[in-house]
Design a protein around this nucleic acid. Structure first.
Lengths: 206, 206
DNA sequence: CTTGTATTGGAATGATCATTCTAATACAAG
DNA sequence: CTTGTATTAGAATGATCATTCCAATACAAG
């Protein structure tokens, strides 16, 4: 039987993810990864094949370990508008508690750094955005008793995805948590206004 | 008298900017810059000092040559809500005509790639965001006859800045211009809704 | 044409990059 | 304890990085 690794594969990926998340792909060297994970170069190559493959594993881990728990409230069966509010505010609260400037969203960072020139990365990021938009659309639809595939609902959800992404990106460049709170609150307020308009329209159609 | 350079300094910076804009800082090598500008290595170093200084010059040029013309309509004396609409829709139209995936906003790209770990870059990007937010705030304020320093106006302008940034970033990862149009239209609609609420509130206070 | 100067491409430098390889090592199984 | 195997740190490799340097060059001024 082989000697067991000092770190589980999950912990290894977790540590590598933290490094990539904070610094990005290009600015992270294999030396950084060896230091961050505490795992030997050889083991990384035999386990993952190379830097890019490890990065893709980290993106996948980010989706499971960071996005899923945070987005759980929105993806819940009975999620409505309040769930979206909770998701956004919890996100800002987490950023504020960890300290600014923040690391942003690893998917958004990857979109900006790599998606335009790497089709494989672009696909992963797009899948993530589709997931967010679907989740938002379901919650928004439930709130106003519409179909989650209603065009207006989907477009509102799409804008919410993009605006939230802008907010997480902005968090990489500020040290002022209050600015983030204000923007999150304003975004929520705007979504609520539109939601009310949609509700009104549905009532008139009765 | 010296031999004149084959390219003016402005053209040199313009070409370098294009490269940095598309690829980012880390992924652009001096070799890329020599090829993109058609200027010798030596001249770049004697003129700018190094890669980072050239990048900062490109950021400055981006502000003058890309942001200023596009944002002119919003910064005009008599700009109102329609100016914001024009800025956003013209931006999407330009992206659609140049072709997707787009290069996004060089300031936003720099925010994501470098701001969290380079104070000098962060300052340049922050100045840019302040400029956008100020411009939006003035136009929004004029539309509803409020002060551009009114807290609600400033917060709405701040959200608009962040949401627009999210939209330009999203353009780096999609090949579908229609998605951008929908998001831009929805953003404009939400801003208009909030603006109407602000107008109503001002009327009640009379 | 000659002189002076800035630019040029390419060579040189030394650092760092991702990746491969290897000898020493540490542990599980027998 | 012995054997087998996976991991390890570090050396080695070759590419590429930013930067420096320089001889050849190209052009303006006289």
């Amino acid at each position: 039987m082989p000697r067991p690794r000092s770190l589980s594969r999950d912990t290894l990926v977790e540590n590598a993810m933290r490094q990539f998340w904070a610094r990005g792909y290009e600015a992270t060297s294999m030396e950084d990864l060896v230091r961050a994970t505490g795992v030997g170069r050889g083991a990384i190559y035999t386990e993952f094949g190379g830097k890019k493959d490890l990065f893709l594993a980290c993106l996948s881990h980010f989706s499971d370990a960071a996005v899923t728990p945070a987005f759980l409230v929105v993806e819940a069966e009975d999620a409505g508008f309040a769930a979206i509010e909770t998701y956004l505010f919890d996100g800002v609260a987490e950023i504020a508690s960890v300290g600014l400037p923040a690391k942003g969203c690893m998917m958004g960072n990857t979109l900006t750094e790599l998606a335009a020139h790497d089709a494989e990365m672009a696909k992963v990021v797009r899948t993530h955005y589709d997931r967010l938009t679907d989740g938002f659309a379901c919650a928004l639809a439930k709130e106003v008793g519409q179909s989650p595939s209603d065009a207006e609902i989907v477009e509102l959800a799409g804008l919410l995805t993009v605006s939230a992404q802008g907010l997480w990106a902005y968090a990489r460049g500020t040290e002022n948590a209050d600015e983030l709170w204000k923007k999150a609150r304003m975004l929520i307020e705007l979504i609520k206004l539109k939601l009310d308009v949609i509700s009104e329209g549905a009532k008139d159609a009765d």
